[in-house]
């Protein structure tokens, strides 16, 4: 069992090994929903919620699978859990905020295939975190995801008003921006404990 302190786990997941900018997880929603700050914020919240739910359930399922010595089913079980959690969020959002449901569009069901979430479940298993540590880790990862999305959305909102050459509009520009952000986040590397 890992004996890292809780604040360190949180900081590690949120900033030092930021899921988006340092580990390249969840790039699709990062590029897809970061055009406006409001969408980015809501997307971040929805993803964080799914992260927490699936992290807690993954912890339980992993315990069960280890007890039954069925570890090779881990991947299939995790993905099934995540798909159910996303379904839950989707129904919830659709019922309570139809406007939000429309603005997130296709990216809401696509949270299932957000690698940040499956990555979180796999990493916490690999690091042998206990229940509380897993919970903190998922909260940290969610906070880091929101942070990256909001930073990117802020930059892109500014860029809307700027005149850039037509060649560099669109995806190429977003990737260059992400590269600069990632470069900035590398400055935190000295804080971290270890990889992952």
């Amino acid at each position: 069992m890992a004996n890292e302190s809780l604040p360190l786990i949180f900081l590690n997941a949120a900033v030092v090994n930021n899921f988006v900018l340092a580990l390249f997880l969840g790039i699709c929603p990062f590029l897809g929903t970061s055009a406006k700050k409001e969408t980015a914020w809501n997307m971040g919240l929805a993803t964080t919620f799914v992260m927490v739910v699936s992290s807690v359930s993954a912890y339980g399922i992993n315990w069960l699978l280890v007890e039954l010595q069925l570890e090779f089913l881990r991947l299939i079980c995790y993905i099934a859990i995540i798909a159910s959690a996303v379904q839950l969020v989707e129904m919830f959002v659709k019922k309570y905020s139809p406007a939000l449901f429309r603005s997130l569009g296709i990216f809401l069901p696509l949270i299932t295939t957000n690698c940040a979430i499956l990555g979180l479940a796999l990493f916490q298993t690999a690091k042998e975190y206990d229940f509380i540590q897993s919970l903190v880790y998922s909260l940290g990862a969610g906070a880091g995801f929101i942070l990256a999305l909001m930073l990117m959305a802020g930059l892109r909102e500014r860029l809307e008003l700027a005149r850039v050459p037509t060649v560099s509009q669109g995806a190429a520009m977003s990737l260059m921006l992400a590269g600069l952000l990632s470069l900035a986040f590398m400055g935190f590397a000295g804080l971290g404990a270890s990889h992952g």
Binding site: A22, L23, A171
Partner: peptide
């Protein structure tokens, strides 16, 4: 060194996309 670190991935992919956009244009 930065090219094998995370930011390099974003930069190189961005550069390839720029090249393709330029060729297409």
């Amino acid at each position: 060194l930065v090219m094998v670190l995370p930011p390099g991935g974003f930069f190189v992919l961005g550069a390839w996309l720029l090249l393709f956009a330029w060729l297409k244009q």
